[in-house]
Design a protein around this nucleic acid. Structure first.
Length: 314
DNA sequence: ATCCAGGTTCACA
DNA sequence: TGTGAACATGGA
């Protein structure tokens, strides 16, 4: 059922970046689990995007230190509106125009940040997933091992997603809300092995079939977040992941059992601590940048043991 | 076998 | 407002 979409080169985008910008650690995160939606080498990243109902493949590298170059592959017509939508998506996904200097100045005052700042200099939050997609991923992360999250993700992408070939790579592409909105709960449960999550995923799809996850502007996103949190299956963790990565609020910190321990060890010098204790310590040290500070420590911790390694790396 | 995993909901103090 | 169990599934 997954016919391979053969994508052709349709566009070249040159996007200015705000310094300091770290290409490698902004587009690739050592802590992220395998999805087959993206692939990274030392200086090139391949990634699929759904732009509206389009399936796109994008190859990204730095043209010079101030310019990220994106080669765009797609099929069918490629209009200015599609280009604009993708440009906006790329800028937003990787925070290309964000100025992180205030955070850096703040973090330089904290000794435990010296190594993360040195190793990951210029890294920012990344979220190539749109609001719908990151919500799905957060749902699959709940109360599951990474192995099981990966299994559920694989099932969903294989059953409802696409496969795209471009620039010599073959990657999976996400499904859109409308592509799963008619799927029955029992199918999610029995075929996709989602367990109790099967009763939530349909609510996500319905919500975003009504609220286009790309067409929502910044101003109304806060409003959207409030509304989104009324959906069953979205709790504090999921909301923080969405707020921190998709909405790019640098203060939003999603504390799961793994990063809670990492941050407790780094900043409290204890093996583990309660969520409110860790949260309070992060706010004390990094007011307004709790999430971004957490990201630096977490990615630095995973750096030597990346969940998915760079292609061509030993 | 039994436990529990990168949470959330629901029921009951 | 605050605790504790149940939730689906599969690997350790």
């Amino acid at each position: 059922m997954n016919d391979i979409h053969q994508l052709s080169h349709v566009d070249t985008l040159r996007l200015p970046v705000t310094q300091p910008f770290n290409f490698r650690y902004s587009l690739w995160k050592p802590s992220h689990f395998a999805t087959d939606l993206e692939r990274h080498s030392v200086d090139v990243s391949w990634r699929t995007f759904r732009v509206g109902e389009h399936v796109c493949g994008v190859v990204m590298r730095m043209a010079d230190s101030d310019t990220l170059q994106a080669e765009v592959f797609s099929e069918g017509s490629w209009e200015d509106a599609d280009r604009n939508r993708l440009v906006h998506r790329l800028i937003h996904s990787y925070g290309l125009n964000e100025d992180i200097s205030a955070f850096v100045a703040q973090a330089q005052q904290v000794p435990q940040m010296a190594e993360p700042l040195a190793e990951l200099a210029g890294m920012r939050q990344s979220c190539p997933e749109n609001l719908f997609e990151i919500a799905i991923i957060s749902l699959l992360l709940q109360n599951a091992t990474v192995a099981r999250t990966t299994q559920m993700m694989t099932n969903l992408l294989d059953h409802y997603g696409r496969v795209a070939e471009f620039d010599g790579v073959t990657l999976k592409a996400f499904f859109t809300p409308s592509e799963i909105v008619g799927v029955d709960e029992s199918v999610f449960r029995e075929r996709d092995r989602l367990g109790y999550r099967a009763k939530y995923i349909g609510r996500f799809a319905e919500f975003f079939a009504m609220h286009d996850p790309d067409e929502v502007d910044h101003a109304s996103k806060a409003e959207l977040m409030t509304e989104f949190q009324t959906i069953k299956g979205v709790g504090p963790y999921t909301a923080a992941i969405i707020a921190g990565s998709a909405v790019r609020d640098p203060s939003a910190l999603g504390l799961d059992v793994w990063n809670r321990k990492i941050l407790a060890q780094r900043f409290l010098d204890v093996d583990d601590a309660e969520v409110p204790v860790v949260q309070a310590k992060m706010t004390e040290l990094f007011p307004g940048h709790e999430g971004l500070a957490g990201l630096y420590v977490i990615e630095e911790t995973y750096r030597q043991q990346a969940v998915v390694k760079l292609v061509g790396d030993a």
